[in-house]
Amino acid sequence: MNGFQLLVIVIVIYLWNRFVVPFFMAYIIDNRLKSIAHYSSLNKSMYEWARPRKQLLIKAVQGFYWLGLLMIITVNLLSEKP
């Protein structure tokens, strides 16, 4: 993997993490779309647990993608045995 390819991947992951992840995570966690009264008690309590921790959870998902990138870079840097 050369520097240009790496740069493209970094930019894509940055844009994904910057715009898409927070936007959709907010929808999923807030679940403002429908009253959670319909949900089972376990689902309801999970959503209620998640709401005050929304920012932390968004960071966790963003972290997952940065971690993926880090793994790709690490594999790329590992020297190949002949």
């Binding site: 929808y27 999923i28 679940n31 403002r32 779309l33 429908k34 319909h38 089972s40 376990l42 689902n43 999970m46």
Partner: peptide, 18 residues
């Protein structure tokens, strides 16, 4: 559009019920 989809329960991704 997302809000409308959500009001019909189409935006529910996670289901924790075992």
């Amino acid at each position: 559009a997302l809000t409308m989809a959500g009001s019909a329960d189409k935006m529910k991704i996670l289901d924790f019920d075992f």
